[in-house]
């Protein structure tokens, strides 16, 4: 662990939560992305986090992006230009309330890690004050 270990670990947490925010915003942006029934629907993205072993500095990293159901849900919209012969289109299987909850979790996680960075910085500055006067 380097000299500013706590700051580095919290920084890795910030990166993971930022990527989670990106995934949630991508899902929300594509909530109404309609496809033909012959095509796969937009797949909801989810961040897969993984711990970094403390031997290599500790913290967290993104192991990969999980993809949701490609089948989505079929909606009867005969007026949609993409509708098939029976009038159905494919909507992505994105649940807005779940995405909004994840948005709050990602935001709070980001804020918590930012608070750790701040607190660690204040602690290191306190160490610099030792014996100053």
């Amino acid at each position: 662990m380097s000299i500013f270990g706590a700051i580095g670990v919290a920084g890795s947490g910030l990166t993971v939560y930022r990527k989670w925010l990106d995934a949630v915003s991508d899902n929300l942006a594509n909530m109404s992305t309609v496809r033909k029934t012959s095509e796969a629907a937009y797949q909801a993205k989810s961040v897969i986090a993984q711990e970094i072993p403390s031997a290599s500095g500790g913290g967290v990293q993104v192991a990969g992006i999980g993809l949701g159901d490609a089948a989505g849900r079929l909606v009867y919209e005969p007026t949609n230009p993409l509708a098939d012969a029976t009038g159905y289109v494919r909507y992505p299987d994105v649940d807005m309330s779940s995405q909004m909850a994840q948005l709050i979790m990602a935001q709070r996680g980001y804020q918590a890690n930012a608070a750790v960075v701040d607190r660690a910085k204040a602690t290191y500055e306190a160490a610099l004050q030792i014996g100053r006067s």
Partner: peptide, 18 residues
């Protein structure tokens, strides 16, 4: 990442003070 920059700035400031 915005925080990458702010963290690096804080770290170098702390290192200079140290």
């Amino acid at each position: 990442d915005v925080h990458d920059y702010t963290i690096a700035a804080s770290e170098s400031k702390l290192a200079v003070e140290l």
